[in-house]
Structures are given as C-alpha cells and as structure tokens.
Amino acid sequence: MKVTARISAAIAAAALCAVAAPGFAQTLNEKIGRDAPEKMREITNVHAGAGRMRFAPLLGPDALSTNLIFVHRGVIAPKSGIGQHYHNQCEEMFVILDGEAEFTVNGRTSRIAGPAGVPDVTGHAHAIYNPTDHPIEWLNINVGHTKRYDNFDLGDAREGAALDPVPQFMSMRLDRALLRPMSGQAQVMYRRVLEPTVFNTPWSYVDHVLVAPGGTFDAAKHADMSEMLYVVNGEGEVTVAGEKARIGKGDAVPVDLGQARSLRATGSAPLELMVVGVARDLAAKAAFAAATGK
C-alpha cells in the first residue's frame, strides 16, 4: 500500500477515536471535544502533501445523529500542507485560525489570511499549504451525504503553485468588524458567513458569533437541525438539554437534534464562536432555507 493511502486511511480512522462504547452514556462534559496539544500526533505526506503536521480528532461520527463525520484540530508546520484531493460523498472546510495559508480548490490557488476558511463541496478538489516560516493553527470540518468519508488523492502537494490575487473559489473570514447586533439578543454580535446554498450535503450554515462578557446566547431546540459549536476565543458555560459544562478556547460542543442550548460568557473577554449547522436530511435543509429566505 502506498504511504499516501495509509495516511488517508489514518485520517479517516482517526474520526472514530472518540466513539463511545456501546451502551455507555456520556455526560455533556465527556461529549465535548477538548483541544489537547499533547494528544496530537505527527503525520507526514497527508494526501500526498508536503512536510508534516500535528493532528488530533475533536469530534467523530458518533458526536451527532446527523451526518457530521468529524472535526479535526491540528498544526501545519512551515513549508508543509495537505495535498490536493477530491471528496465525492462528503464536504470539508479547512479553517486557519491564525497566520496565512495557500488554499487550493480545483487547481486554483490563493493566499488567504486567517482566521478564515474555505469550503470544498462534493465533486471538487482541495488542498492547503503553509508557505510561511511559522506554524499555522488548523481546523477541519467534514459533513457527508452519509457518515462515510471518501477521498481520491491527486498526488499534488501544491508547492510553488501560481497564485491568483483574487480567490477563484468560495471563502469566508471570521472578521469581527463584519458582525452586527443579533435580533432579540442585545449582548450578542452575529453574522451568517456561509449560507445553505454553499453546500450540497445537509450541511446548512456556518455562523460567526461574539457574546459580550457576562452575556448569554440562547437558542430554541430544533427537531431537524443539529449544531457544532467551536470556541474560537474566550471562556464560558454551555447548557445543552439542561446539562451544563465549562467551555474554553479550542473546545467543540455537539448539540443534537431536538436539544435546546444556551451559552454564557464567563471570562473578562468576549466568547467567540463558530457555529456549524447540519440538518437531519436534505428535505429538512430545504425547509430551513425556505423559512430563513436563503
């Protein structure tokens, strides 16, 4: 077996690391994916990419009953990256939390400064490369038509790729300057950075949220929409289905179908979140889009 195939298989298998044993009832605190640098392992030749990176799963396919396959956290070393590869049954978004990276979609490459993300929808190829002399904090979110991960590697590390000054693909920035007050929640600033039309799977949206110190961010439960809350910065307390847990920078919180959730910023700085919505199925996503006018 080729090294690239082994690495691709290892990434897919890592998504299963957080799966609970049958019959084991997890508390909310145990369900939350915690950023733990000491648990990251070093891998090389990722999808035939250059150099090396450190990597660990935050959430696996068991985290939600919807088709969230995984949330991965890692650090891409200088002059390193993830080679160009296709997904035909699932969709990914590479997010850089700091620094700058060269993102590629379908062979077109642009340099983008973080915090930013680039979605790769079904049937398209993507890659990422760190051309700088500094490590880049990286996050990867994967949602499928099913719980099955798929990939097809192109053997292209994208080192020295020609750069387009204007990205020829969709991207998003977690830019606080673009946030606006959220209707009905005075202490919350909000922006929907990616709409339902971006994705082909039940992946429905990506939101950027900022909760003022001492403020709360509440949401009613939705029978057909789940969420993954990623803490970009700050500290807080989350309540999901009546159960409370502490959260901080780097944590990933699963909120399943029919579960009400609320957050409270407990630190001296705002609680900053990226919220990913995944619908029960495509029909539920269409109904959500119709109801929100998107």
Rank of each mutant, 00 (worst) to 15 (best):
K79F: 09
S171P: 00
S110A: 11
D207C: 08
G123W: 06
L282P: 00
A287F: 09
A77V: 04
A161Q: 05
I136W: 04
N130D: 02
D120E: 10
A9V: 03
D175E: 10
H85M: 01
A125I: 02
G144T: 07
E159A: 11
F152R: 12
Q26E: 14
Q185F: 10
L282E: 03
R6H: 15
E102P: 02
G81Y: 05
R148G: 00
Y230V: 13
G81W: 06
R176A: 12
F70L: 15
V118N: 00
V238R: 08
Q187H: 14
D35G: 06
N233C: 07
A219G: 08
Y129N: 07
R158N: 11
E102G: 11
E227S: 13
A284H: 04
G155T: 09
G123A: 02
A289H: 05
R52Q: 12
P213K: 09
H134G: 05
A10G: 06
G160A: 08
D256L: 09
Y190D: 02
K249S: 05
P131T: 02
A14I: 10
H85N: 00
K31R: 15
V143A: 05
I247R: 04
H208M: 11
R111I: 12
P196S: 01
D224V: 12
A63G: 08
I69G: 01
T104R: 02
A223L: 12
Y230W: 12
V198G: 01
R246N: 10
R176Y: 07
G258P: 05
L174I: 11
V240A: 07
T27A: 09
R111T: 10
Y205A: 09
F55I: 14
T146H: 01
V275C: 08
A50D: 08
G214M: 07
A56H: 13
P22D: 07
G258T: 09
N67P: 02
K147F: 05
T292S: 10
M182V: 00
D224C: 04
F55T: 10
A25E: 15
V166A: 09
A161T: 02
A101C: 11
L282V: 04
V95N: 00
S268P: 08
G155Y: 11
M40S: 12
P213I: 00
T66I: 08
A101L: 10
D62T: 14
E227Q: 14
R108I: 06
A289T: 07
L97Y: 13
I69F: 01
G215R: 09
T201I: 00
E272R: 11
A48K: 04
D207R: 10
C90S: 09
A56M: 15
P61L: 02
G60V: 07
L59M: 03
E237H: 04
E235Q: 15
N142K: 08
F288E: 01
G267C: 01
F169P: 02
A15R: 14
Q185T: 06
A177N: 14
